[in-house]
Design a protein around this nucleic acid. Structure first.
Lengths: 219, 219
DNA sequence: GTCTATAATTAGATAGAC
DNA sequence: GTCTATCTAATTATAGAC
């Protein structure tokens, strides 16, 4: 998924598989330990290669980080694009609900996305500039303009689109990002399929103003 | 707030002020760079002391981290306790709304809370065990039992309490934790008082099922 | 391409003067 | 208490054999 088999092969065939193993290990460790906290030695060890092998395949730790993040956003983009391609002509409210469910399901399978964005959102830095300009802004623009149209037709509450955006990106992924805490506090793994479904239902019901099943009306 | 002036003074008076400056610097840097990413040299530099001074006041980097986190949760606890003390006899729905607003306001002023919890929620580790057992579980227990009662009387949607808990802890603080991204994407600082109020209104309206206006968009 | 060996830097913690 | 100087270990990156 992160390799590009279409690119002209200037390298040995075995290099692609090695590159992908390094990228997968790098993504996990960068997400868990942050850029500074992850060590190239541990990435190499998890990928089953020597530490200098990383500097052969990637110019630096920084370039390895960017390549790993590229792969993650490529996967998210492919997921959302596949959903939208299958829904041409469907009304916008239904489309929005299904895309939001896809986003939540993706966040459960790949909590690295939210973790890495959170880690880079400290003071300033080149990585957050690159992250926002390259990957986040396109998603933000399409999401907020969709929310504005949904609010205009009364499908979602009349909350300014940037706030709705951050309510969704917080309410959706957080339970999966904090899964180790959730296991300790609540005694269940939120990333199990039943939990993901319950959580997606809850977030969608909340956003689209549906009161959950069965509760008595407020006095 | 983190020093204990009531404790028997076995140290010089100047030590308390130094300790507090170290703790404040440590909290900021641990929150921004994670435990591994923050260096004791930079914490010392920001606090205006030498690096070995940290090892005089705290046994180790690990103990410094715990002391900084203790201070943060003490401040949150004091904030919530003050609110609850002022609301004896008030109905539970009103109490819940005000406490949630306090939590969101606190998260805007102290995004370190959510950042540190997120950072420690990787695989496993002694720090997450300590964090949950010492500080998070009491808050979780009181919050989820409150949510259960509110759901039973129809004040909030009928969503299982653990999911409601993570929807709140995600939807509330995330916009402040991702403030550097928000500034770049939406062009405003979410931590400004008007934005905090708009966001708190939006989250409360959503949780309590009001379709109300979220207020004017921030400039 | 992948390895071992290592260079250059930086980390947390300690020793000891004052 | 606070400092300067320094120890040991771990970090990223490079050199060069195969």
């Amino acid at each position: 998924m992160a390799s590009s088999p279409s690119a002209a092969r200037r390298t040995r065939p075995s290099a692609d598989a090695t590159r992908d193993r390094i990228l997968a290990a790098a993504l996990d460790l960068f997400a868990d330990r942050s850029f500074e906290g992850a060590t190239t030695r541990e990435i190499a060890h998890r990928a089953g290669v020597s530490q200098p092998s990383l500097n052969y395949h990637f110019r630096s730790k920084d370039e390895l980080w960017r390549a790993a993040v590229d792969g993650l956003f490529a996967e998210l983009g492919a997921t959302l694009r596949a959903r939208l391609d299958g829904l041409r002509g469907v009304d916008e409210v239904t489309t929005a609900e299904l895309v939001i469910r896809d986003f939540i399901t993706f966040s459960a399978a790949h909590p690295q996305l939210h973790r890495i964005i959170t880690q880079e959102c400290k003071g300033e830095g080149e990585r957050i500039d690159w992250l926002v300009d390259t990957h986040v802004r396109p998603l933000y623009d399409v999401t907020t303009s969709l929310f504005s149209r949904l609010a205009a037709q009364g499908a979602v509450p009349d909350i300014p689109a940037p706030f709705l955006y951050y309510i969704l990106t917080g309410a959706g992924p957080t339970i999966f990002v904090l899964a180790p805490e959730c296991r300790r506090l609540a005694g269940f793994d939120p990333r199990r399929p039943e939990s993901v479904a319950t959580h997606a239902d809850a977030v969608v019901d909340l956003l689209f103003g549906r009161r959950g099943a069965g509760g008595p009306p407020a006095p």
